[in-house]
Design a protein around this nucleic acid. Structure first.
Lengths: 212, 212
DNA sequence: TCAGTTTATGAAGGATTCTTCAGATTTGGC
DNA sequence: GCCAAATCTGAAGAATCCTTCATAAACTGA
């Protein structure tokens, strides 16, 4: 999705006073709540405003339309996750491959799990709002960060190709989604975390062996 | 999702005459087309009927509501994929682990790709229509089939735990989704197919090593 | 050919929702 | 305390969409 296609989703006005900032936050949070409680189909702009304790008009002061609201919430979340991955990559520089993967994968899962409700509810809106494009953008960010870090691994034989790295993130995201949408118990999440580490470690090691 | 929650999605009437069967097919197909061309938000019951060359009333003769229409299309597709996996598992019995994985993974990807347009467009409706529940059901079917087949592998050290197997399918599905939603070129799809084989093979082998 | 069954039609009812805007209220600096 | 800017309000307009039902057409077996 080209940049201009994201334009109609841009916020209408930026808060100046503190109370406005509070309002905007309340609206974001209310969006999540409504999404969780009623689902995307019952998410109306009025209902979100109600839940946020403001009037619809206020909502439309900051978001040009319903889509832009959903878009903003989703983009925030994905940015949060991508940043966590980037941080982890920075932290993991110079460590052995295996440890590197552990650090990055756990950072990803933990970022997703800091607010499970957000993660779960946002799966619903991906389709509406250019979710695939956003996901791809995040995939690219993560890939670049990890590729740079991989270069610093002392036991690296050959750098995995870009496709493999992107694939790895997509796989992680898919498995995480599956677990979260299954109503993840804490025990399952621990399980997920551990299994994803193994999955990614073994995949990246396999990439090493086939350095054609 | 318990069985009764799926009830309201059940078809209203089953076609008796041939022309009715043709109509139902046309409606299914039209649903895909509209989904692809206009997206879920512009998918109206009238538009689907138009595209199918019938009137709205006809549509409502076979589907009690819009959701049931979407549900049916999604369920069909997922069933198709799950069946393909089950068949592959049956075919792969008694072969070495590595070959087994190749057979199953390729069957999965190929099933998804027989009609790329269907796969792509259906991602949009998953949220509306209990997609997660359907996906889980398919995950279970695939897991059971593969577990049974794994037992017959001559070089199996220890059976991977159920969670790992489910995880594997979820990862595959996630990576596939990512690629398809990126506008998959044929070359990318070949790439995906191959990488997923490697991913699953190495993951399953890793499970062998840690047979605690 | 005929009667009963199946299938198709599409205008219209009923309901929901997005979005606007003119005016009221609050804030912050002076 | 005062004023301009910022913020908030919420009823109502405008549009869209799902679903029904009375009627018509097509089919099938006898």
């Amino acid at each position: 999705m080209p940049a201009h296609a994201l334009r109609p989703f841009e916020p209408r006005k930026t808060p100046v006073q503190r109370r406005a900032a509070v309002t905007v936050d309340a609206i974001s949070e209310a969006t999540i709540q409504v999404l969780l409680k009623h689902g995307i189909n019952q998410l109306t702009t009025t209902r979100v405003a109600e839940r946020a304790g403001v009037s619809v008009g206020t909502l439309y002061q900051y978001y040009p339309n319903k889509q832009s609201l959903l878009f903003a919430v989703l983009a925030d979340h994905l940015d949060h996750v991508a940043s966590a991955v980037e941080d982890a990559c920075a932290r993991a520089r110079g460590t052995p491959l295996s440890e590197m993967m552990k650090t990055v994968v756990e950072a990803f899962v933990d970022a997703k799990m800091t607010r499970i409700d957000v993660s779960v509810s946002l799966y619903q809106i991906a389709a509406d709002v250019g979710g695939p494009a956003l996901a791809r953008r995040m995939g690219q960010r993560s890939r670049k960060a990890l590729e740079a870090t991989l270069q610093t691994a002392p036991d690296l034989v050959s750098a995995p190709d870009s496709f493999a790295v992107e694939m790895m993130f997509a796989s992680m995201a898919g498995a995480t989604r599956y677990v979260l949408e299954s109503g993840a118990s804490p025990a399952m999440i621990r399980n997920l975390r551990h299994h994803l580490v193994v999955l990614c470690q073994s995949y990246m090691k396999a990439q090493q062996r086939r350095s054609r």
